[in-house]
């Protein structure tokens, strides 16, 4: 038993240093509020480690578009609740290189409102990064909706936009944008109570939003894995039974 405990501690230690761990690398930016949802990440990491083989690290990492470490993190997270300042040319160019190299950004609008100031700022800046590919609705048949859980719909702590938006690059999503305060469903106070009430669906909505968060992270780690034929046959049967759109169709 002692050996098992020691091995577990050793494994946890190695885990902390491991390059294939999931770090919640958060993008800091000028203006607006980059540090919204700062209580979500530890909870989400624990959930991921509990239900899956994802090696998620509780402590977030803070980065800017100029950080030398940016390219060490193939997935970064950006949250906000208000309009933010324009990125300069060097930052835009650096982010272009980041996405060219295979980086993915997950963006969450904490206002949970359609066309908020934050949302407008995001679209303004990403139009500079992807001038020919504006953020557009991610199809229901995308792998992101089947990467771990079967998802009937899209929500967060709010349900203002029933879809995710994104930009696809080389056959995989480079940008995933949620307008529904997706990561807000993970925030807890010190007593362990949920900070945000989920409206209008209550706790059922929270659960669906949590499942979507897991799917997005799983997608960022394994890409379109679930669209392989070996999975789609199996998933199709399940989805047929649930009257959901068959994965891979319409891609």
């Amino acid at each position: 038993m002692r050996k098992i405990i020691l091995a577990f501690i050793a494994l946890s230690f190695v885990s902390l240093l491991f390059s294939n761990n999931l770090y919640f690398a958060r993008l800091k930016y000028e203006g607006g509020n980059w540090d919204s949802q700062n209580l979500a990440w530890g909870e989400l990491a624990d959930f991921l480690v509990g239900i899956s083989n994802v090696r998620a690290v509780r402590e977030p990492v803070i980065l800017t578009a100029d950080s030398p470490e940016l390219f060490n993190y193939p997935v970064i997270f950006m949250t906000g609740d208000s309009a933010f300042a324009e990125w300069n040319h060097a930052q835009i160019e650096r982010l272009k290189r980041y996405f060219d190299a295979g980086g993915i950004i997950v963006i969450d609008d904490c206002t949970g409102l359609k066309d908020s100031g934050f949302s407008k700022s995001v679209k303004r800046e990403f139009a500079k990064i992807f001038p020919n590919d504006p953020l557009s609705r991610i199809k229901d048949s995308n792998a992101v909706f089947i990467s771990f859980f079967l998802l009937p719909g899209v929500c967060g702590a709010r349900q203002s936009v029933p879809y995710l938006e994104g930009v696809e690059k080389s056959g995989q999503l480079a940008v995933i944008f949620s307008a529904n305060d997706l990561f807000g469903v993970w925030e807890k106070d010190k007593l362990g109570n949920w900070l945000k009430e989920c409206r209008p669906g209550g706790e059922t909505q929270r659960l669906e939003a949590q499942k979507l968060s897991v799917n997005i992270i799983m997608y960022a780690m394994v890409g379109t894995y679930k669209l392989d034929a070996i999975h789609t046959d199996y998933i199709s049967q399940k989805m047929k039974a649930l009257n959901m759109k068959i994965p891979g169709q319409g891609r």
Binding site: N20, R55, P74, G102, G171, M221, V222, G223, Y225
Partner: peptide, 17 residues
Amino acid sequence: SGHPNYEYRFLRQVLKT
């Protein structure tokens, strides 16, 4: 692959293309 990880995602991209 033993667990979800970036080595898989990037190699998959190479092989799938």
